[in-house]
Structure formats: structure tokens, C-alpha cells
């Protein structure tokens, strides 16, 4: 009696997972996160059953988008009143609320589900590495990242840079300095269409 109760509790338990969104694609991460929210990682999965888990996502501020997406990917909104349509680029949304991109990515992937709001309530998003202690104590597992986090030039030590093998030599009269970032103009500066700031 008590034994069965306790065993059933163990099978149906709701576990907590944590995910580091640092330099990860929000859309590909959301694919994986949604799997855990729905409970599809469990062999006891059923679409009617509510056996999804909690997922804590941190470093959403440092999420990475491919190509032009920061500029071209738009979030739309309509207040259902006349003239109530508005849109904003991903970078604007991200500036306003650093967790919104990740939240929207997960929400839009949950299309057609009646339990959408319940599942979104189990998704906890934090922009940086500061997570409340009571949430962190609940966590019992980590979801693997979707992309390799590349090592930036700043992360290499001077020694490593010096010791890295030189694969080729620049020609003698090659102007290397013109390609340095400091000497380059801002993307929009060379155009006359200054109003086109999307």
C-alpha cells in the first residue's frame, strides 16, 4: 500500500533540468527544451498525460542568432484594435527584454497544444548566471548544449597566440592594418539611407 504509493510517486515525479543558453541558437535549443517540457524524454509519455519536467534556462542574454537574424527576424504584435499592428527586430526585443527571444522561440514551437500555458509556466528563464538559490536547489540534471561554444580570440592567452604555428606569410606590400576592426567604418555609415535603421 505505502510501497505502491511511493513507487508511483517516483515514476510520476517531475524533475528539474538546467540549460546554459550561452552562445546557443535559441530555435535549435527550444527544440530540445520543448522535448523535456512535454515529457517526450520519458518512456511513460502520453499526449494526454501531464508528465513534463521543469527547465531552467540561464544566460539567455548571451544567446546567438545566425546570419542576419538579429536584424531581419521580426517579432509581430497586434492589439486587435485598428492600427494595432507593430513589429520589432530581434535585437530591439532583446534590448528591451533579454529573455523574450528564448521565451518566444519555445512558445512558438509549442503550436497546437492545449497544455501550452501550463508547459510555459514550467519554463524558467534567467538572462545571466544569477539564478535564485531555491530554484537552483531543485535542479537534478543538465541538458546538453546544441552548438559548440567557440573559443573567442579574447579567451586565448598571449602565449598560445604566439606559439600557434604560422601557416603562411603575408606578401610584403600587403596592407594588414586596413582589415583591423578599429579601422573599419560602421555598416550603416557608408550609406546615405540613414533612416533605414531596422
Amino acid at each position: 500500500m505505502a510501497n505502491n504509493r511511493v513507487l508511483q510517486w517516483a515514476v510520476m515525479a517531475r524533475t528539474w533540468w538546467i540549460y546554459d543558453a550561452n552562445l546557443q541558437c535559441p530555435f535549435r535549443s527550444s527544440e530540445r527544451i520543448i522535448t523535456y517540457l512535454k515529457g517526450k524524454h520519458k518512456p511513460i509519455y502520453h499526449p494526454f498525460a501531464d508528465i513534463g519536467d521543469h527547465v531552467v534556462v540561464f544566460n539567455t542574454r548571451h544567446v546567438a542568432m545566425r546570419g542576419n537574424f538579429w536584424r531581419t527576424f521580426k517579432h509581430f504584435n497586434h492589439t486587435r484594435y485598428a492600427g494595432g499592428f507593430s513589429q520589432a527586430s530581434a535585437w530591439r526585443v532583446h534590448e528591451m527584454d533579454p529573455t523574450r527571444i528564448m521565451e518566444k522561440a519555445c512558445y512558438q514551437r509549442l503550436s497546437g497544444l492545449p497544455m501550452k500555458k501550463t508547459l510555459m509556466a514550467r519554463l524558467h528563464l534567467y538572462p545571466d548566471e544569477e539564478i535564485p538559490q531555491e530554484i537552483l536547489e531543485n535542479v537534478s540534471g543538465q541538458i546538453r548544449q546544441v552548438q559548440v561554444v567557440p573559443k573567442k580570440l579574447e579567451d586565448y592567452t598571449e602565449e598560445e597566440i604566439q606559439n600557434f604555428p604560422r601557416l603562411f606569410e603575408w606578401p610584403e606590400n600587403y596592407d594588414v592594418e586596413s582589415y583591423q576592426r578599429e579601422n573599419q567604418q560602421e555598416p550603416d555609415q557608408h550609406t546615405t539611407k540613414k533612416w533605414r535603421l531596422d
Binding site: I18, Y19, D20, F58, E129, L136, V139, S140, G141, Q142, I143, R144, Q145, V146, Q147, V148, V149
Partner: peptide
Amino acid sequence: EFPSKKFSQIQV
């Protein structure tokens, strides 16, 4: 102790 780099990194 979560978050841990070992279980987070993608296996290349």
C-alpha cells in the same frame, strides 16, 4: 553541483 560545464558541453 548544477550548472556544470561537464554535463553542459556538447560532445564533439
